[in-house]
Design a protein around this nucleic acid. Structure first.
Length: 260
DNA sequence: CACACTGTTCGCTC
DNA sequence: CGAGCGAACAGTGT
């Protein structure tokens, strides 16, 4: 599930559930989800509490009372879950924190592509991991800088987390649909106006998704997402939506509407 | 059985 | 060294 808007929602969820509550225990059922020895996480978390959060792209940072942050990445199938009764532990809640108020916090991760890490300093961590500033707070000028002179398809470029952190597969398709740009268009063949159209669509799609709590059914009628399947009907032209592979990912677009 | 999936990371080539 | 590319990772759903 999680691209930028979903992780934004997870951040709100964390903020309203587990901040400022002492962590008593940590249990992890599959340590492949941990980027460091479990001992390091326990030392950081047990007896401590979360004090705030930051989100950069799809990465969520949970700050603790001693500066160092817990880093969460949800992969393709992750979400947080807060519940009281241990019997309510979700089926895929592979990592669980027990809190002082008898509530539990589970990191659900069906497909196990998500992970936890530790960051001493969030800004340094961001740079070390090649993340741009969060797409939502990126200016047009910064967006242009991050594009530099990349040679590959525009879709691959905007999905690159060092260009505009937070964009994933469906958002990239939606952005390019709104900007009327073909996903295989090369940056070198785009003029300034087209680049700024992509930037504007990027911001619009993010805000629309957040306004609607990442609930796709509520997105505007003219969004591709309602028709994002092979043979779907383009909400602008009525033409048949086409499916291709770009950068190994399924890509949907409207042939006449999105020009190469 | 084959394939798809809203993501990242690794190893390889250029 | 960096960009680009394809495969790998793991599990579930159709």
């Amino acid at each position: 599930m999680p691209e930028l808007p979903e992780v934004h929602g997870y951040q709100q969820y964390v903020n309203s559930t587990i901040l400022h509550k002492e962590i008593l225990e940590m249990e992890c059922r599959d340590e492949r989800l941990l980027k460091r020895p479990i001992k390091a996480f326990k030392e950081l978390l047990i007896g401590n509490q979360f004090t705030g959060t930051q989100r950069i792209g799809k990465y969520l940072f949970l700050e603790t009372s001693n500066q160092t942050s817990l880093v969460m990445h949800f992969g393709m199938t992750g979400r947080p879950s807060y519940y009281k009764d241990a019997a309510q532990r979700p089926k895929f809640g592979h990592i669980v924190l027990s809190l002082v108020n008898d509530f539990q916090f589970a990191f659900e991760n069906k497909r196990k592509f998500g992970w936890w890490d530790i960051a001493e300093n969030i800004e340094e961590y961001r740079k070390e991991h090649g993340l741009s500033k969060d797409a939502r707070s990126l200016s047009l000028e910064e967006f242009r800088e991050n594009l530099s002179n990349r040679k590959t398809d525009i879709k691959k470029v905007i999905m690159d987390q060092s260009v505009c952190a937070g964009v994933g597969n469906w958002m990239a398709d939606e952005i390019l649909f709104q900007a009327q740009v073909h996903p295989e268009k090369k940056l070198a063949d785009m003029d300034d106006q087209q680049v700024s159209n992509v930037y504007k669509a990027l911001q619009d799609v993010i805000e629309t998704a957040i306004d609607n709590d990442a609930h796709y059914d509520d997105f505007p009628k003219n969004y591709l997402i309602h028709h994002r399947k092979e043979g779907g009907s383009c909400p602008q032209t009525g033409a048949s939506i086409q499916k291709i592979k770009v950068g190994g990912r399924s890509t949907y677009f409207s042939p006449e509407w999105q020009k190469k």
